[in-house]
Each structure stands twice: as C-alpha cells, then as structure tokens.
C-alpha cells in the first residue's frame, strides 16, 4: 500500500460519505443522479464477488463491504425513503442505463484477460466504472446550479481515479507490479471524463464563486 493508493481510497471513501451525509442530514438528493448511483451499485456488486473467494486483507474486505453497503443505501434512499425520494428530479435524470451497460458488457466479452465468469464480471465492472459518472455529469450540466456537497462529491470521485493512476505508475516502478492495460485505458478514460468538471471546479475555487457549469 503506497501513499497514492491510500489517498485514492480515502478520497473515494470521502466522496461516498459526503453523498450519504448530504442525503441523510438534509434529506435531499437534489442534483444527484440515481442512474449513476445504480450503475455504481452494479459496478461494486460485479467487482467484489471475490470477497467470497479470495482473501487479500482485512482492509480490503472492509472497504469492499463499505462500498457495497453505501452504494446500495444511496440507491435505497433515493428510491424508497419517503422524504428523500420527493427531492429526486426524475425528469432531468433521463440517461438510459442500457446505453452504458450493454456496450460495457459486449466490450468485456470481447476484451478480457481470462474467460471465466468472475474475470468477465470484473472486467465489465472496470469498463462500467469508467463511464458510470456520465449520467451525473449530464445532470449537473442540465441543472447548472450545483450545491456544495454535490460538487465536492463529484470532485472527490474524480480525484480518486486520478490518484489510482499515480498509484499504478508508482507500483510499476517500485514493485514491478503490472496493471493490465485494460485497467490503464479504463482508468485514463474515467479520469479524462472529469477534466471539464475539474476545470470549472478549480476556476470557481480560485475566484471564490459558486460552481456553475456553462450551458
């Protein structure tokens, strides 16, 4: 475990906690895309099947359980909680799941490291994670006014994969640990999707004005 990996995991954890905090305390999910949250729940459910088969470390297992638990609770809050669900803007959050899920499924069937169920699901989860933020980014673009917590959530989520890339570079040089090129490409795509958001996030921070995305 190096500092980049730890920082990446911590920003990932923080992003989820920020979102849960917002939903739980303000009882509102305004500006949050249910589509993105459902895709993340699917990402974790397909990637972390290995908690039943492999043991890596207590840290690893605990983190996996946290990500599974938090993603499914967020989905539950937006769909089922009697107050939170009222703040969900269904009309704006129109991105179609299958538009992302199907291509990722096909790509995983075509490009993978090993043809086993577990490995295919893992590869699928890597592809899906790379693009799962899209419904959320589209929603931000549509609503334009972004509250602080939602902005921080997206920022932390983007920071997480960028730190993972630094972690892969570091591991390559220190441990000669090779991350498969599938992971590299997906990770780079995932990080690049945030480039635009990062730009406006830092601009608003620098000028000390409220974050707004251009129409």
């Amino acid at each position: 475990m190096n500092i980049f990996r730890l920082a990446g995991d911590m920003t990932h954890l923080a992003s989820v906690l920020v979102l849960l905090l917002k939903i739980h305390t303000i009882k509102s999910c305004a500006g949050v895309s249910l589509k993105t949250q459902e895709l993340y729940a699917l990402v974790f459910a397909t990637r972390y099947l290995d908690i039943f088969t492999d043991f890596i470390s207590v840290y690893n297992t605990v983190m996996k359980l946290i990500f599974l638990g938090s993603s499914f609770s967020i989905v539950w809050y937006i769909r089922r909680h009697k107050i939170v669900r009222r703040s969900y803007d269904k009309e704006q959050d129109t991105f179609r799941h299958y538009f992302l899920v199907l291509p990722c499924l096909l790509l995983a069937l075509l490009i993978h490291e090993k043809f086993t169920v577990k490995e295919l699901l893992w590869t699928f989860s890597i592809y899906l994670e790379a693009v799962a933020i899209l419904p959320q980014l589209v929603l931000l673009q549509r609503t334009r006014n972004i509250d602080n917590l939602t902005g921080q959530y997206v920022f932390l989520l983007g920071a997480y994969r960028s730190l993972y890339i630094l972690n892969w570079i570091y591991r390559y040089f220190t441990e000669r640990h090779f991350v498969h090129w599938i992971t590299w490409i997906a990770g780079l795509v995932q990080t690049l999707l945030y480039a635009d958001f990062f730009y406006y996030y830092f601009e608003s921070w620098k000028n000390n004005v409220k974050l707004q995305l251009p129409a």
Binding site: R5, D9, H12, R47, M63, F67, K114, W122, Y164, N167
Partner: peptide, 10 residues
C-alpha cells in the same frame, strides 16, 4: 502453474 490474475485493488 497457471497464473490467476489477482485483483488486490478496490
């Protein structure tokens, strides 16, 4: 021996 890719990251 067969190399099984192990995913030790999250």
């Amino acid at each position: 021996k067969e190399k099984v890719p192990q995913h030790d990251e999250l």
